[in-house]
């Protein structure tokens, strides 16, 4: 696919609030991106020129924010609305290999949708959620830089331009980010994730060692910050790569002012994947 042909939709509903910087990140790299309200996919109250289909796009992003006020559980209402109107399309989209990204609240939506951990390639949305993003162990809203180690061996299409073992700094800003797997199945889930190369980012300290709070801001099992599905095309993470797209967004940017921000590689990776699609 040519660069100019690539179209990215950043989905929004009431309460999402990171769609603008996410759209900007994609546009800065030369692809077409727009924020699309969920109702543009199904409502008959929408003007013709604003009606959309999922298949108008090659990549879908669930952005950060507080969709529907985080009522019920973070991401639960956004997920329920997507399921009620787009379930079949979304499953086909994933099966065909098109990439889906969920950042922060978007990761919570993907977990609630049953799209992650996404062990079953033929059934990309599980009937019931298979993981939860619970309240941070600290019971605080954690809003600050975090260090992540990239652990993916090449399956995740959003991080192929980041070397395995490389450390990056993406900031977090969430109250519900603690990865929880069903009780008693934790070890089994972790084994499957490792075996399938689905672990993408883990929280580390400044030296790159796995460490507890505050380095692991929420108490996630196995220090998990981000995982992908078994196919590698659905990726969710709590930290915000779009908030470190430019080097000047890093606290220590003066050390290397001309280099790109750490988060840019996420967007470059998926664009490269789509160019070869």
């Amino acid at each position: 696919m040519e660069l100019e042909e690539i179209r990215v939709a950043v989905l929004r509903i009431e309460g999402t609030n990171c769609e603008d910087e996410t759209v900007k990140a994609f546009r800065s790299l030369g692809v077409y991106a727009e924020a699309v309200h969920l109702k543009q996919f199904y409502s008959d109250m929408i003007r013709d020129e604003e009606q959309r289909s999922l298949f108008d796009y090659h990549c879908i992003v669930f952005p950060g924010g507080f969709s529907a006020g985080d009522y019920v559980r973070a991401g639960a209402i956004f997920s329920a609305r997507v399921k009620s109107v787009l379930k079949r399309d979304l499953e086909e989209f994933i099966r065909e290999g098109y990439p889906i990204l969920g950042i922060c609240n978007g990761f919570q939506v993907l977990a609630e949708l049953g799209a992650l951990p996404g062990f079953d390639e033929d059934k990309p949305l599980a009937d019931k959620p298979e993981m939860a993003l619970g309240i941070n162990e600290s019971n605080r809203f954690e809003c600050r830089p975090t260090f992540l180690k990239h652990e993916n061996g090449g399956k995740c299409v959003f991080t192929r331009k980041i070397g395995k073992g490389k450390m990056v700094m993406f900031p977090v800003a969430h109250a519900e980010g603690r990865v929880i797997f069903p009780r008693g199945k934790e070890e089994d889930y972790l084994e499957r994730l490792k075996e399938n190369d689905q672990v993408v980012f883990r929280y580390v300290d400044e030296r790159g060692n796995y460490a507890g709070y505050p380095w692991n801001p929420n108490g996630s099992i196995y220090n998990i910050a981000g995982i992908c599905n078994v196919k590698g095309n659905v990726f969710g993470l709590m930290p915000h790569p779009e908030r470190v797209f430019w080097r000047y967004q890093h606290p220590n940017w003066l050390e290397n002012p001309e280099s790109p921000g750490d988060g840019r590689a996420v967007f470059e990776s998926v664009i490269e994947y789509l160019r070869e699609f």
Partner: peptide
């Protein structure tokens, strides 16, 4: 409850 109100994992 199964579709929205509860997440059966937790």
């Amino acid at each position: 409850c199964e579709k929205l109100l509860a997440n059966p994992v937790i």
